[in-house]
Design a protein around this nucleic acid. Sequence first.
DNA 1: ATCTTTCTTGACCGATCGGTTCAGAAAGGA
DNA 2: TCCTTTCTGAACCGATCGGTCAAGAAAGAT
Lengths: 192, 192
Amino acid sequence: MARTKEFDPDVVLQAALELFWRRGYEATSMADLVEGLGIARASIYATFGSKRELYLRALERYSEQRDSGQLNDLSQPGPVLPAVRALVRQYAEAGEEDRKRGCFVTNAAVELAPHDPAAARRVEASLDHLETALTAALLRARAQGELPADREPRALARMLVVLLQGIRVVGKATDGGTRARDAAEQALTLLD
Amino acid sequence: MARTKEFDPDVVLQAALELFWRRGYEATSMADLVEGLGIARASIYATFGSKRELYLRALERYSEQRDSGQLNDLSQPGPVLPAVRALVRQYAEAGEEDRKRGCFVTNAAVELAPHDPAAARRVEASLDHLETALTAALLRARAQGELPADREPRALARMLVVLLQGIRVVGKATDGGTRARDAAEQALTLLD
DNA sequence: ATCTTTCTTGACCGATCGGTTCAGAAAGGA
DNA sequence: TCCTTTCTGAACCGATCGGTCAAGAAAGAT
């Protein structure tokens, strides 16, 4: 047999995810990655193929982690609207670090999706996941009598998905004001 | 006196705006600009100083054009809610070209704002302009009896501003589906 | 017509880009 | 112990990055 790997690809991928998340694709150089990942340049290429493939893997990993977390939050038994409200408020009340970093999917949508079909597919898959999870949650809320019967779960879910993307955008430029909070609360009145 | 300029800086700036708008800051090289602007590399530097300054000027120009257009649309005499609805629907129903290009301010917010204070200020100024214009329109709508008296124009305006940013983001990755339209219509029910 | 000033052009700069190559170190099987 | 295999680190690749510079062209003043 041969020499064993000296690093954990999962750990390295997570480090790459954080670099790309913070700085974006173009602004993160291979030199940045070599330094931040702590492994040799050639090992990155041997393990992940190219900068772009590494980015796509990182994006995929981010989506999986995030989507499963959100799905879990929205699938707890009992009242469901509090979980939806908590999710939206969590976006609106993020601290400075989270605001500046934004959402990796949002960043990828803006920077890469228009000219990178693979990135666009991953972005759309992630948006679909969130929309589906929110729709399921709102359907359950309606069945449980938390949500008035005349509401449309799918349309409400889409509105929330789009709103959350917007919150991540304005958070990039706005210092802790109440814009995102006001927007979130106003949108949440549609659930009353 | 000396030789006169052979190009119109306004025309050149507009061309730069379109390049940066479509490809973003990092992905647009000076070589791209030289080709797209039709003037020599050194002339760009002599006229605008640097790539970054040119970008900021382009962003400023975009904001001015756009803000004044939106302010105008929302300031027509007579009923105001139709104008608000038209504005939101215009975002939601953009064609493929407009969707992929997105909003220059949104793009700048995501790509530059977190690490470029000057860009962040311009983005925030543009968001403020739109929020102010929408708030003024909704105040007028309320005074004219178009909007129920218990609504909060400022909070509604903020919700719409954030939603519009979100529409520009999801439009980057989503091919003409109904997500943005459903989200827009759902949000607009808050004006009924 | 000549001078002065400013503009345009294209060659050029060092630095950095993403990506490749290769010699040697290291680990397991024989 | 030696061999095979795989990983590591650093040197290296051509291309491209943003930015500069010097030489000459052009236009108005004299």
